[in-house]
């Protein structure tokens, strides 16, 4: 297969970026999108040009590191899949493909397709945990958990922190990411004691990082590789509201 690529190149955080054209040939349909970029980079390196910088690690859809905005969609055209799980068979031979970084004010570009998503870590640091020190736990089976709740908590906990929800959102809102963690912990008895403070602190930090507001567009859910549901946002809003009332 052959493709025309338009790739965002930007030397560093301060430099001006632009789309640069590349063509690539002899691509096997069973290659992953990142393997296609590997081949392109290999060609560039051999020609003495600077290869395209991009984030990736596990290449199994679980670490959340890969993050490309491909032809107008976060993680590309394949539903419920990360960039690394996208295969070239999803594209038409001869197609022109746009490759850009995940864009958001809170995700500054480091180089080319690589962005700084540390804002997510700072939100988690405000409450994305249960405050239990090592060694303080009781026997794991002392506290049964409703299986249905445990399943819902697991659904929310599947978030990989990739930021596609932010990149997909016209407002650059991080609601889906934040609500996934808040929901997971709110659904479990272990997380209950801290739920009020958690909701307030995490939401405040989210605002401070410069993420936008939610206007119920739903692009986040549509592009989320882990199919995190909008119902989590509803739950978060409830938690936040209750917490605000209690705090008054």
């Amino acid at each position: 297969m052959k493709f025309n690529l338009k790739v965002w190149r930007q030397k560093n955080a301060k430099a001006q970026g632009k789309l640069v054209d590349y063509t690539i040939d002899n691509i096997n349909a069973d290659m992953s999108f990142l393997e296609m970029v590997d081949v392109l980079n290999d060609n560039l390196t051999r020609k003495g040009e600077d290869p395209i910088a991009f984030d990736h690690d596990c290449r199994e859809g679980i670490c959340g590191m890969c993050s490309m905005y491909i032809s107008g969609r976060a993680h590309g055209p394949h539903h419920a899949a990360t960039t690394c799980q996208l295969y070239m068979r999803s594209f038409k031979d001869g197609e022109t493909i746009y490759v850009e970084p995940f864009r958001a004010g809170a995700f500054p570009i480091i180089k080319d397709l690589v962005t700084d998503r540390s804002a997510f870590d700072r939100i988690i640091a405000k409450g994305g945990f249960v405050s239990v020190n090592t060694g303080q736990a009781q026997d794991a089976n002392n506290l049964p958990v409703d299986k249905a709740d445990a399943e819902k908590a697991m659904d929310a906990a599947a978030c990989i922190g990739c930021g596609a929800c932010v990149a997909a959102c016209p407002n650059s809102a991080a609601m889906l990411f934040v609500s996934a963690k808040i929901s997971q912990l709110a659904l479990l008895p272990q997380g209950a004691p801290e739920k009020n403070n958690r909701a307030i602190n995490m939401v405040n930090q989210m605002d401070e990082e410069g993420f936008g507001n939610c206007t119920n567009i739903g692009a986040c859910e549509a592009e989320c590789p882990k199919e995190i549901k909008l119902t989590n946002i509803a739950r978060m809003n409830r938690e936040y509201l209750v917490a605000s009332l209690i705090n008054e």
Partner: peptide
């Protein structure tokens, strides 16, 4: 044995049986 206790206390959503136990 302590690991499982610790992780459950942290909110790790391990698989459970219908009775709610691990």
């Amino acid at each position: 044995r302590n690991i499982i206790d610790q992780c459950v206390a942290q909110g790790v959503p391990f698989a459970r049986e219908y009775g709610g136990l691990l």
